[in-house]
Design a protein around this nucleic acid. Structure first.
Lengths: 189, 189
DNA sequence: AAAAACATTTGCCATATGGCAAAAAACGAT
DNA sequence: ATCGTTTTTTGCCATATGGCAAATGTTTTT
């Protein structure tokens, strides 16, 4: 739980008692490779924090192709916000790419913490804003650069991820086919 | 100011007195076509709400090309969040694409409202989360679809925008060249 | 109304990426 | 270690998009 505590404290201060309360609601959970953390068509029921492993968010486009929208790695929050916040069905899958160790909060517990701990909502808001801003920032360059540049930027941004995910996931994230990605990789020194 | 009031009330309730206080801080402002609302290298000083007109967020990539990251139209908030929240220099320009009428709040006033009005922070959080989620949702499909599909989706998502912005802005938003976009348009019935 | 400035379209050809199928390599289970 | 499965690479050719420059069309200024 140390990772989670450190993560939270980056965004604001809580006293020992408040932090303890948060931790009593935190449940540790294993998610095996390929299993889903949340699924399209269902309502997201948990907020997660990845201690170990990589997840991805993916969906099927109108041609039926499976598209990876983004990757989430260690020490990050994982939650389908739109679904969780608004109690609506999710439009994407959140899937473990490797075996994952995750800390989860049920929706009821999460809500209780928001109602109970003064200042927790502000911290949560900061965490979420930062994550969303980062998401936008990471996806934007994917549109305007050529495929090789996109791949190189990905390597810089996610050095920990690149060798742990199948090429096909990465290719759809970058918006190219797997064979193109393979060729691009070959041409990099 | 009616537009702003309606917009706010979508996200939560405020009494008359609270709303009046907000409106005392709101200043109306004109921004002429091509002028900047905020600039790269400077710290964003205002939160804006577009009453009329279209703005865009743009930056220069490492090849020196000007890239439009997104468009913002009527009845939406406009602010470089990362810069405004953290007091750091902005990395992008926010520019009026057409003449704009905007309601603005200075940073000091905005902060005062947050400190004074109970519940205003929650409303602001909701507004911002929704805007960010929307931004992510809008950019994601740009990566995985072909250019024609991207253009068609843009038309659906921004019917009000498409005929009011130069082709070059739209092309860089879609990640293609202006001439390709011109050809794509020609081939659409 | 004419001129100038700007925006869009088009032609020509180069290049990047896609589609598909087979080969090669890597991984897992027995 | 071996077989079977899955992932990655490669070859071949088709197609989409880019680059550049000229032509056309549109707006703004004088």
């Amino acid at each position: 739980m140390k990772e989670l505590v450190n993560y939270i404290l980056q965004f604001g201060n809580l006293n020992q008692q408040q932090m303890d309360l948060i931790l009593t609601k935190a449940k540790e959970k294993e998610i095996k490779k390929e299993e889903y953390f949340s699924e399209a068509g269902k309502i997201a029921a948990e907020v997660g924090f990845i201690i170990d492993g990589i997840m991805r968010v993916c969906y099927y486009n109108n041609k039926g192709e499976e598209i990876t929208k983004y990757f989430i790695d260690e020490n990050n929050l994982v939650v389908d916000l739109e679904s969780f916040d608004n109690n609506i069905c999710s439009s994407a899958y959140v899937q473990a790419v490797t075996d994952c160790k995750v800390i989860v909060f049920s929706k009821a517990d999460w809500q209780e913490l928001l109602d109970t701990i003064v200042g927790w909502d502000t911290i949560v808001h900061k965490i979420i804003s930062k994550a969303l801003i980062q998401k936008v920032a990471r996806r934007s360059p994917l549109v305007s650069e050529d495929a090789t540049t996109r791949y190189l930027s990905f390597m810089e941004m996610f050095p920990k991820v690149i060798n742990r995910v199948p090429l096909s996931y990465l290719a759809s994230y970058l918006g190219i086919t797997q064979s193109s990605l393979s060729r691009i990789r070959k041409n990099i020194p």
